[in-house]
Design a protein around this nucleic acid. Sequence first.
RNA 1: AGCGGGGUGGGGCAGCCAGGAGUGCCCGUCGGGCUCAUAACCCGAAGGUCAAAGGUUCAAAUCCUUUCCCCGCUACCA
Length: 521
Amino acid sequence: MVTVKNTYYVTTPLYYVNAKPHIGSAYTTLAADIIARFQRLKGKKVFFLTGTDEHGEKISKAAEEKGKQPKEFLDELVPFYTDYWKKLNISYDGFIRTTDLMHEKAVIKFFKKVYENGDIYLGEYEGYYCVPCETYYSETQLQGEKNCPSCGKKTQLMREQSYFFKLSKYEQALLGYIESTDFVLPESRKNEIVNFIKQGLQDLSISRTSIKWGIPVPMDKSHVIYVWFDALLNYITGIGYGSNSKQFKSIWPADVHLMGKEIVRFHAVIWPAMLLAAGLDLPKKVFGHGWLTVEGEKMSKSKGNFIDPIEVTEKYSVDAFRYFLFREIPFGSDGDYSEKALVQRINSELADGLGNLLNRTVVMVEKYFEGKIPHAVNISKQDKELRDFTLKKSEETDKLIEALEFHRALSSIWEIINASNKYINDQKPWELAKADKKEELGNVLASLSESLRITSILLAPFIPETSEKIQKQLGIEVKKFDEAFKWNLIQKGTKTGKAEILFRKVELEKAGKEKKEKEST
RNA sequence: AGCGGGGUGGGGCAGCCAGGAGUGCCCGUCGGGCUCAUAACCCGAAGGUCAAAGGUUCAAAUCCUUUCCCCGCUACCA
């Protein structure tokens, strides 16, 4: 008998605090939130970890420019992130900063352990160094005549002492593991990683003497630990490695690490190698999602086309934003954020599809049954069809969310909504009312209330506020996802709440004008 | 160069891994129905040789080969 682990551990990468959160980091974090909320509803004890990466030269330089100590500088910036996640309804359980004392201590412990095991050694690092940028670049990153890719100035070939991690030692172990499992997802990412490893792994330089802002190497204080080596460890230090081993053991290994595709390599190659070196279990999945473009264009500093998610959510709503991102873009593929597409989805799917369905249902319960949801009796063929269809789609949705196929899950939920709207048109409850066929009318409204109840559960991970609003209007409260697999759970005579507009329709022209006005002020 | 991803009705996308009548979603166009509802909802129609060619198969958008066109990745800034 296999015992099912009742915990679920999901992470986002740690965000580098030298800039505001943008739509990319919001996208990853929202995805993690969907997973966390889903698993909680499924009854799992969830730990959802996010946080900030605070070491490295870019931070110290940014702080210096402001005339501040790094720590002081960071303390001012971090609340910006935590507030941000609050505004997006991110339900994280832990927020780790790599400057947390607990983290730093645990990193040192980990470093020592791997050193003692013989997988860290002192060597010499050689690379192209840009003096003004104080940064090493690989040969392939250089522009033209060995010029720095960021400032364009000529780089110099430099050498310095460095501690190395024996990444090469784990080449075969990693390759075997990755090739034979679905550790790296989606599959296209897995292929990239497999090919990368097949080209051969070099040992990784994991210390710097040129940088001061970081965690010192325990056996040699003139070195600072390379930021990635430090940052990746958050996934274990954030749940108690080195400080609370009981908690750590109950949560580790991670069920899924989420990230953008650009850093899959760090998570699928370096990170598992580090864990192997320390004799720890490997995470179950590493998922690299795609990149977002904005209005068809890549986001870039020069174009200045960064989207501030908070502006979007203030203009529309958090749920509209959450819905749009995960309905529009297949999770794992690249996708485009455009205001036009967002408005279209709001209008046709959230307002006309879902909102209107709820409204017409609740209004009819009010009008025909004094706001008390009737019970079904002697249900018809059509009632059964709606029930069976809804339950089928509900189970399908469950599987799709589990598989992180969010856009398909939402599509599946909207099939229920569309079927329900069609069902109303076919059943013509207004005619039943006129003909005073109370029993049949009751069946129709009972069925609709049930399909909406189930819809509200299925939507809860994605658009939690909306889900609650639906339940409030139906006069119900849902605690478990499993209730979406059963019919007729609404108590007879349940009093509906006030019928309110769930999503208002938006006119794009008007919205565009408001934006311009806002910009000009 | 190597490796990977993509090219699907007017626009934007799913579907492809586990082949089965071009199946679906959002928008747009045209026509109809309905009035409970957020000028919402429902039905129907026009529109595609599923990039091109070849192959496997009873059957290919889906598998294989080749070609053309787009886009990524090729590590130690994060």
